[in-house]
Design a protein around this nucleic acid. Sequence first.
DNA 1: AGGGTCGTTATACTTCAACC
DNA 2: GGTTGAAGTATAACGACCCT
Length: 303
Amino acid sequence: MDPRHLRAFLHIVETGSFSAAAERVNLTQPALSRQIHLLEDEAGEILLRRTGRGAEPTEAGLVLVEHARAILEAIDGARRAMGVRRSQVTGRVTVGLPPSVGVRLTAPLVRRFREHHPLVGLCLVEELSGVVQEGLLSGWIDVGLLYAQAASPALAQEALLTEDLALIGRPDQMPGGSDCVPVRALAELPILLPGRRHGLRALVDQAAFRHGIVVRVDIEADSLRVLGELAHAGLGLVVHAPSAFAPDLAAGTLVARPLGEPPLQRAIVLAWPRDRAPSRAALAMAETVRELLKTGGWPTPQP
DNA sequence: AGGGTCGTTATACTTCAACC
DNA sequence: GGTTGAAGTATAACGACCCT
């Protein structure tokens, strides 16, 4: 039963006339007459009694009226449901974040994403920049945040923000003075840094090379938590973005001094594979990250 | 290109109320 | 009760469009 025929049938029943119903649905009366004939052929019954002054449903027609209404309501319901589905993002997205970014961004990002896209399954991967990049290239991470210095050309990138780096450590471990610490000073200080797979390490090594020095990295640690613990223990000074240690800086257990003049900076980019079209869930995640940064959802306390 | 579907126009047919 | 005109439906012919 063609829904158009059923709709025409109901209009005729409601108006009591083929002509009036035809006007209502912007067709001519013969077109409607033919639709009803097709419907009657299929039903094997006369559905409308033509009276010469209009039309009225027969007994069979009355039975069909209720069914036609239910069928059309079911079709409209399906259309509405499809419309809702189209407007809502579903699926699953895997997001890669370096620990120093994840420690600040994860909770507000998840909160905002769940508010806007409750039907999307979320998988968070907190790994070093290099691992996140490998995940993006091999396809098990959909969208990630990386340090620009580490990002492969095979990834599409969108600059998100630039952070000034600082020297972070216990107050009694800090070199004298209150101004910024020159990059050259890194040659004389016990520095705590991640290993060479880490984008931050590459950035510091490049800066050291430009200044003609070698950084004294006595201890390497690939974990932000371990770097913080070592700094608390007085075993060295960490080069990092101050926001990664915001609670310690706020509590005063660690202090931060700007590093370099002009300041040493690192850029954080949003990245996804160039060779695959991102899913709707991945696009929604990328948009949430942008919004979060735009609306100040990224805590960046000053040292 | 040919067939099927669906729409339109023109017109035939039917019914009914008003009138004589 | 017969006639007439209005209102409404059915049908034929044709064209546009879509699918195979």
